[in-house]
Amino acid sequence: MHRKVMIIAGEASGDARAAGLVRAVKRQRPDIRFFGIGGDQLRAEGVDTLVDSRVMAVVGLFEVLAHFPTIYGALQLMRRKLREERPDLLILVDYPDFNLRLAKTAKELGIKVLYYISPQIWAWRQERVHRIRELVDHMAVVFPFEEPFYRNAGVPVTFVGHPLVEEVHSSFDHIGACRAFGLDPARKVLGLFPGSRRSEIKRLLPVLLDAAAQLHTKHPDLQFILPRASTLSEADLAPHFAGRNVPVTVVPGRAYDVMAACDAIVSASGTATLEIALMRTPLVVIYKIAPLSYRIMSRMVKVNHIALCNIVAGARIAPELIQHDAKADRIADEAESLLYDTMRNAQMRERLSLVREKLGAAGASDNVARVVLQMLDIPTPR
Rank of each mutant, 00 (worst) to 15 (best):
F241H: 05
E357I: 14
D333W: 13
V55G: 00
A315R: 11
A346N: 13
D210C: 10
Q323Y: 01
A272Y: 05
Y95S: 10
A364R: 07
A313C: 08
F181I: 06
K81S: 08
M6F: 10
M6G: 04
A140M: 09
A153M: 04
F145W: 08
L321R: 09
D329I: 11
L232F: 08
T217H: 12
I111P: 11
E234M: 12
H324I: 04
S298P: 09
G46K: 02
M56P: 10
R316C: 07
P96T: 06
G20Q: 12
L204V: 06
V303D: 00
R80L: 03
A140I: 01
F181Y: 11
V129K: 03
L164Y: 09
L109K: 00
N367Q: 12
R280N: 13
V355S: 13
L90S: 10
V266L: 05
Q41W: 06
D184Q: 03
A229S: 08
S269M: 13
A177D: 11
V250G: 04
L274F: 10
D173S: 11
V5A: 00
A74W: 05
L215S: 03
A261G: 08
R79F: 09
V142L: 14
P220C: 05
V141P: 02
M348P: 12
S233A: 14
K81V: 01
V312G: 03
A242C: 05
N245F: 11
L192H: 10
L232A: 11
D88P: 08
E85S: 11
L321A: 13
A106K: 08
L208N: 08
G191R: 07
G176T: 10
A16M: 14
S171V: 10
E85C: 06
P252A: 08
K358F: 00
P144E: 06
K218Q: 12
A211V: 10
T342N: 12
E167A: 15
N152I: 07
F181V: 02
K218S: 14
Q120C: 15
I286L: 09
A103D: 05
Y115K: 03
K288F: 02
F181N: 00
H138L: 02
G191T: 05
K202Y: 09
E275C: 05
D329W: 12
M6K: 13
G176P: 01
P381R: 04
G176R: 05
R79H: 06
A235E: 15
R244H: 12
